[in-house]
Amino acid sequence: MSVHAIMPPLPARRPRRPIPGFGLSLGYSIVYLSFVVLLPLIALAMSAARLDFDGWMRVLTDDRVIAALRLSFGSALAAAIVNSVFGPICAYALVRFRFPGRRMLDALVDVPFALPTAVAGIALASLYAPSGPMGKAILEVFGVQVGYTSLGVTLALIFVGLPFTVRTLQPVLRDLEGDMEQAAALLGADRSRVWRRVIVPSVAPALVTAFTLSFARGAGEYGSVIFIAGNFPRLSEIAPLLIIIRLEESNYAGASAIAMVMLLVSLCSLVVINLFQALMRERLGHE
């Protein structure tokens, strides 16, 4: 007697019970997000919408506002450029070479993420202030003042943005070593050709991502910057600080306008980078 004869016939396929909790989890998430993010951002949009065209013009042509926006975005751009040069070098050396202190340096890369911004801020300020050890040395040797100038702001933003580039590039470089570079070398490409045709093109998309992330983060950065900036109006006053100053003056319209401009620029840069990534994926998929 075969086993099948004594077993009751199995149902062809048991209808699957749907996973429960859709309403509860989605509902709770939406309520939470609405209170924490959506409602406040709508309040910002409404507050900025209360300004008419002339009001916007008045805020945006104020030279103090222009100077602050230029400082925040300009320094963020400069810092992102510096990090796009040194970040890849660090990432490459940390992934490819074995050298003394490598593990410590690799761990150090995470410090700017982990260190509270105010702590980084006072540390940088006391180092690079004109009376601080680094600030004094640079002033004497190069005749350039770092603390309380836009240079100091850029320096703080280099610190803040550094992990973005290194950490974004490391996995890409690690993957590359395994197959693409070996294949290229096996096929007879010399090292400079491997660099030109394999390493640089593969790393470029990740570098653009890292550049944008570090730019967006730097433009809005507050804690690590205000101590080293010195906050002189029109000279070293960053845009987030000006929002706080406007708020303290109860000038909500002025604060909202600056906040709106900053928000739109960071959102736009993030949208552009997402489009760029989609484009890259598509191109790589077709090739």
Partner: peptide
Amino acid sequence: LLSLIDLPFAVSPVIAGYVLVLVFGSSG
């Protein structure tokens, strides 16, 4: 929903605080 979860990364911390003032402030 996913973009809303990513949004705070694009917002300056100062703006995050400021929008709360707009909602919960005395004239919010």
